[in-house]
Design a protein around this nucleic acid. Sequence first.
DNA 1: CGTTCCGGTGTGGTAGGACCACAGGGCGTG
DNA 2: CACGCCCTGTGGTCCTACCACACCGGAACG
Lengths: 259, 259
Amino acid sequence: MRLTLPSSGLAAQPLNPCFRSLHVCGRTTGYDGGMRNHELVLSWIEAELAAGRLAVGQRLPGERAVAEQLNVSRASAREGIRVLEAMGVVRAGVGSGPGAGTVITANPAVALGSALRFHVASSHLPVEDIVQTRLLLETWAAGHASATAPSMETAAALLDDMDAPGLATAEFLRLDALFHVALAEAAGNVLIGAMMSSLRGSIETYTQQLTSRLPDWNTTAERLRAEHRAIHRAIGGDGGDPAVLIAAHIEGFYREAGL
Amino acid sequence: MRLTLPSSGLAAQPLNPCFRSLHVCGRTTGYDGGMRNHELVLSWIEAELAAGRLAVGQRLPGERAVAEQLNVSRASAREGIRVLEAMGVVRAGVGSGPGAGTVITANPAVALGSALRFHVASSHLPVEDIVQTRLLLETWAAGHASATAPSMETAAALLDDMDAPGLATAEFLRLDALFHVALAEAAGNVLIGAMMSSLRGSIETYTQQLTSRLPDWNTTAERLRAEHRAIHRAIGGDGGDPAVLIAAHIEGFYREAGL
DNA sequence: CGTTCCGGTGTGGTAGGACCACAGGGCGTG
DNA sequence: CACGCCCTGTGGTCCTACCACACCGGAACG
């Protein structure tokens, strides 16, 4: 239960490694607190990020440079960077010039999304829990959405797109998901927007399966369109409680699909 | 135990172009959809998980075995496994015997937690958003908590621990965090419990800084203890709305600290 | 017969070197 | 001036060889 090194708590287990053995595994300086080498990379980058020496949009030093700087092998540096990529903190690109190399990004949604998918796959995260959470987040977001938020225009455009005749079901659902995410973003909370985005992604296939259980898709789609318009109007201040409307909207869909 | 490759006929054929192109390096004519090799490992394990061939508690094949099976190098296999570890899907342990090797776990909280920390560090995730989200999740959880949930006993024990005289501030905060997480878990939603746990972890240092701005810690601690008891009683049905109480509890703390 | 010790074995962790595919940028040639 | 080739730096991959670790079974000892 080591609470040392508070600024970077990735190392949960001691896992006392091999590097303090005289000179073999490199880094004779020691004092890594039992951290594996790739975690060393993680905590270093976290510190650089927190100190402002690295910022979104900048490029990370090359893998070889990172490895040399931290006295680890390139493989260890790569492992750390790989984790960062999975967390949506960086984006790797080959070649040279702008856009190449490892660039710092800020995409919390990918981190949550992929992790959620895995835990759903391992049957330790019931889909009902995700749906329930989604309902909670969206209801809150609708209640706090600002009519003047830029994403509200995006939402309006998506509504028009969804009116296109002969739209395939999958395409409709995709636009639907984007619409809901746009609403969540209109509340101005980055975290909740990211969570909504991840949640929708992790239950996307599930939602598609649900549509096949509907009695008549066209009728449902028409109703969804109308409800979307009503929610959008309500956020604009045109009568009605957005939170109530969106809660009914979501619950109605799952109920009709036979939840 | 030999795991079989997801049928797909061409498993016998070199799935990896590494063997075609003069036996060097990967993916010349990739039929892997442009997927990097470590992503191949990820999708394979996800498939095995979804198919039930891998389950929580079981051990993953050794890194060397995974590498050979997917026709990738051990380094690539390790990168994939490292990502899984960061997502809380597996846990790596050296040595032999039970507990050693790469064991499948289910710990969504670590994934969200570490990712959140990084995005806070990169200044793309305001702490206020996290606090706001925490308030939302906890209020909901308190309103849906079951008095008979096992974690309610844990919560009660934590309350007693917090009554210990001469408790250090940091230790009190640690117990406090565990208490709130226990309450969230009592609502029975795995995802929300995991999110709460991550959120608390990612703002832990921030909370500790806040305490230094309080006029008198002892007074505040006494008030927090009383409020905790009241919330716990309310969930047990002993009068009062748990959601209202916990919302006031959280908001009160941040207000007193000068939010 | 029980106990202790020691090496074998399999696991993750690490290092280092090598090569490939890619994308620019600079320089040379037309 | 324009075109095209090579040089350079980047991530991506592979291989091989180690180390540290923890169990486990057989050998040696009391």
